[in-house]
Design a binder for these strands. Structure first.
Lengths: 185, 185
DNA sequence: CCTTCTTAAATGAATGTTCATTTAACGCGT
DNA sequence: ACGCGTTAAATGAACATTCATTTAAGAAGG
């Protein structure tokens, strides 16, 4: 039984970092607070990662890895696909919030290779569905995808002002109904 | 010719603050840099506003004041309404970015009174349009509004990954076409 | 019109605090 | 006993904020 367990600490650190960054962003995050959450000393952060910034990037990369392809596209049933995207987002609010921070604080960074590739695959899948007639063909696949993603994530972006217009239970079907109307031929 | 002109300085300060906050958020903003942008000394900031935080709030309030009702709703032509929202957003990227920061950094704050009221008015307008038959009546007005707003702002939220799928020129019509499909009876 | 007095505006160096990062010592497991 | 994982404390840079001082614009008085 390893009472010394670097891997476990590393894992705890990543989880605490996600929580801290999701709440405050990089600039607002405090290394001390984050280390305390992880149950380690602040100094130890630096033996695992390249400082606060490095930790932020590491968390981002872990999220990308776990999130891309977490919800495989089903181009023949885009409403359900959007619904599943929504479900996943709703189940991981911390991750969504982290990504929102990342988009602002790392606005200039290029899109990661894996993400770009995943996007291409989705386009290809939609184009196939258009050819087989399950998706309307009068709009380019990229446009269809943009709409599906926008609707799938709509409740993430909407603030409290818009959010309270609809109950939690209704949110999913708002998305699926709208996508159905938009993509069926 | 007034070489001393507090009102002008105050104005310059607000503009510089918007630029600085839009770029870095509150936590990342630097008072020195912001003051230099405004062409004033850092100390002067504190004679106008309650520190960095107070300045942030002041900029937010100014934006809310200028933005609410900047695009009056036309419930009988929601596609065009969404298009106009998009136009305005596209014309003021700094403001949009500022609001994105605000949503994250002030997540817990209640919705301002003016915003809530403006929302109620929009709902009422849509309900009227539903009664007169220009908007589908099989969905509650709140749901319709949520969809319209989500689509109007879709290009603000989408990152570079999705954004490059469609050219600038197409963006507006993607929104208006989609809204038309979603809201017509 | 000048000169002096008064008040407001503005500055920027000094202050004190907050924080990321470094360092040096400690002790567990082998 | 040795080396690595870990810590607590030390360091110092970065910043927000304050404040003593300077500068400018009127007001009062001659």
């Amino acid at each position: 039984m390893a009472t010394r367990d670097p891997d476990r600490k590393r894992q705890q650190l990543m989880e605490a970092a996600l929580a801290e960054f999701a709440e405050y962003g990089v600039a607002g995050a405090r290394v001390d607070r984050l280390a305390k959450r992880a149950g380690i000393s602040p100094g130890l952060v630096y033996s695992f990662f390249a400082g606060k910034e490095g930790l932020f990037e590491a968390v981002y990369e872990a999220i990308v890895e776990q999130t891309v392809d977490a919800v495989p596209i089903d181009a023949d049933d885009l409403p359900e696909y959007a619904g599943r995207l929504h479900d996943t987002a709703a189940r991981h609010p911390q991750v969504m919030r982290f990504l929102a921070w990342y988009a602002l604080e790392r606005a200039e960074r290029p899109v990661p290779e894996v993400v770009a590739r995943s996007m291409d695959e989705k386009i290809t899948a939609i184009e196939a569905a258009q050819r087989s007639g399950t998706v309307r063909s009068d709009k380019p696949a990229g446009e269809v995808l943009a709409l599906v993603l926008a609707l799938a994530n709509m409740w993430q972006h909407q603030g409290e002002d818009v959010g309270h217009l609809v109950t939690d239970a209704q949110r999913r079907s708002v998305i699926t109904d709208a996508v159905r109307r938009l993509v069926t031929p």
